[in-house]
């Protein structure tokens, strides 16, 4: 479904991604792990279409469609969802009205009828129950005054509401205590099915105890230096990132 081929990305003069290759199929969960500054978040942002990145080579496609040629909103309508590492606070826009607008924009794109207030509310109530989010957070402005855990939970709630085909979770575990981590992971696991895919970007193995990946890729200095099954994450946890960074040829780490 998602194909990343030989992707090179720069920010200003600095090369961040240096030839990434990744194939994600329906029904799969991939974890991208790596130390700080390895380019994990850059990869997530480039897939979602954030500005400020210069693509100097390669391609990213979703079901054969060129993602890099699309605006962020077009990618979202095609089924890409980025759960933000730092969800943005939007004063004056209630969570509910934000999601209604977003959902209907996506439905319009798919040729579906827009949901009216009543049907939207019914749908939202179901999802609220599923993710364990209460009325209070729904009626408040988007993320405003939310705790770290509430913000992340809100991202997963949006994931459930918008039902994308590809969910990219950028450091969703950062700033979460163990209880919040369980709730958020539970939401992601409920989302998983044979028709969609999840890419989990994380520094720590911890999250992968709850969202169990099919594949683990280790990103170091803008390259995937190792790929494997879920046991690779445990091995990393045990041996630390030095274990893989040392496997990168010295000349290339400069």
């Amino acid at each position: 479904m998602l194909t990343v081929k030989d992707l090179y990305v720069r920010v200003e003069d600095k090369e961040i991604l240096k030839g990434i290759n990744l194939q994600v199929n329906r029904g799969e969960v991939h974890a991208i792990m790596g130390p700080n500054g390895s380019g994990k978040s850059t990869l997530a942002n480039v897939i979602a279409g954030k500005e400020g990145y210069e693509i100097t080579g390669g391609e990213v496609t979703l079901d054969g469609k060129d993602l890099l040629d699309m605006l962020p909103e077009e990618r979202a309508r095609e089924g890409v969802f980025l759960a933000f590492q730092y969800p943005v606070e939007i004063p004056g826009v209630s969570n509910a009205s934000f999601l209604k607008t977003a959902l209907n924009e996506i439905r319009k794109h798919k040729g579906l009828e827009e949901l009216d207030a009543m049907h939207f509310l019914k749908f939202m109530k179901e999802k609220m129950k599923m993710v364990g989010i209460d009325d209070n957070l729904i009626n408040r402005p988007v993320n405003q005054g939310f705790s770290g855990g509430e913000k992340k939970r809100n991202e997963i709630f949006q994931l459930q509401m918008l039902q994308p085909t590809l969910a990219v979770l950028d450091e969703t575990d950062s700033g979460l205590d163990i209880d919040a981590l369980k709730v958020v992971s539970h939401g992601v696991n409920l989302f998983r099915n044979k028709d969609n895919a999840v890419v989990v970007v994380t520094h720590y193995q911890r999250l992968l105890n709850y969202i169990v990946p099919d594949f683990v890729h280790v990103l170091v200095s803008g390259r995937i230096v190792k790929s494997g099954g879920k046991e690779l994450a445990l091995e990393l946890e045990d041996k630390g990132y030095d274990w893989v960074t040392n496997t990168v040829p010295a000349a290339e780490t400069v």
Partner: peptide
């Protein structure tokens, strides 16, 4: 706030 604009766009809302 351009971060907020991107956040909305990333959810399918046109610019």
């Amino acid at each position: 706030d351009e971060e907020a604009v991107f956040y909305l766009r990333s959810r399918g809302i046109g610019e």
